[in-house]
Design a binder for these strands. Structure first.
Lengths: 124, 124, 124, 124
DNA sequence: GTGGTCTAGACCACC
DNA sequence: GTGGTCTAGACCACA
């Protein structure tokens, strides 16, 4: 499970880590029960601060993706723990709002937008 | 043309203003040649600082949505000035990446995701 | 002699007018002794303020391109009045400095830069 | 890496800073990965405001010359990030237009103009 | 300690 | 009166 960080990105490092872990789940490299490297180790590997990794792990915990087991590390949860629910759908809708609005304003048809989305969906 | 700001949102005020203006274009309240309120006036109406409005207007200028006329104000550009091009599509794809990845990871089918998108698209 | 103004340009209108007049001289539409429209008339034609045209005419006068004859209007000077001199060459070098530096920094070879210049020179 | 500002110049301070940094790259004093002084430090050294430096750094970022690392500072990008592309050449041609036109109008031959340019090019 | 955001208030070029 | 530039000083997210 390879995690890569782009220091020049505007996206905070901890969000990039979160996205990487999610990518690992999608690719099947991480499955229920998989153990993530400790904050200390991952931070050292990436050359970043331990607390940054900790923040990423907390985000994943809040999202239901992992459980942080005291003194046993961080492990991936079963799928049903992070299955999309209404709260998530609301949040998703919210995030999409201004992005989709700008796309529509720029003359992107619904079909082309859906095209972009499905391409991204299939690609990840 | 009503512009509203949520001071408690984590989204920067200038982004909210940008989104509002784009919304106004979508609703047809702002058309090519429409004049936006001056930085000072809008800032005063919203109870915020002039420079924050100025930053929003500059973002809109960079996005091709408006022209800033040195000492005459800010006006909406013709549609072709901000039509989606390859650079924008790349940026859009980029922004979608991690959002779509998380949705897929949470077990959202492509069809349901497209559903969310089209609903948002039709609603704005 | 057609003069066009781009209100959306960052370049001040009076500089655009100046550039237009210089373009007219280059194209041979304006020759020594040609009379320019009065500030009032040109301003009215362009839909701008009289003083803006006046400023452009003053710039042209300072550059040696025209003479402002009291109550007789503005007329184009003979070429020798605005022939490049040392002061102008210094000013030109000055203006070029940061532009050329950026071009060089971006990896533009001297040959390609000269190419751009000669193309512009031949085209105007 | 010395950065100097002329407070009496009509060129905005942030443009002067940008030009200075570009000069530093040209002279080889700044190379890929070089870290620029923080906004606060440079501002303090120059006796100007933090935000003015910040604006210069943002201009450099928009031009592809540097990356702004959220809380680590500003570093010089690899050359290919700011290599001249078509968009830049268009912009360059645009900037040259009125300058070259005036030179031609003042009777400067193409050869002498190229001379000026190459001298500036070699000197920076 | 870094840049990002926001405020408040000043002066200036332009029109 | 408009936006552009600059200053001064505050708080915050990030690392």
């Amino acid at each position: 499970m390879l995690i890569e960080i782009d220091m020049t990105s505007e996206k905070p490092i901890y969000e990039q880590i979160k996205a990487s872990i999610i990518g690992g789940i999608l690719k099947g490299e991480l499955v229920e029960g998989s153990k993530l490297p400790s904050s200390r180790v991952l931070a050292s590997n990436l050359g970043i601060n331990m607390h940054t990794v900790g923040k990423a792990y907390n985000l994943l915990k809040d999202g239901g993706f992992v459980s942080v087991l005291r003194s046993k590390g961080v492990v991936i949860n079963p799928l049903q723990m992070y299955q999309a629910d209404k709260a998530y759908l609301d949040e998703l809708t919210n995030m999409m709002n201004s992005i989709v609005a700008e796309a529509k304003c720029r003359g992107l048809s619904k079909e082309r937008l859906v095209d972009v989305i499905t391409t991204v969906y299939d690609h990840c």
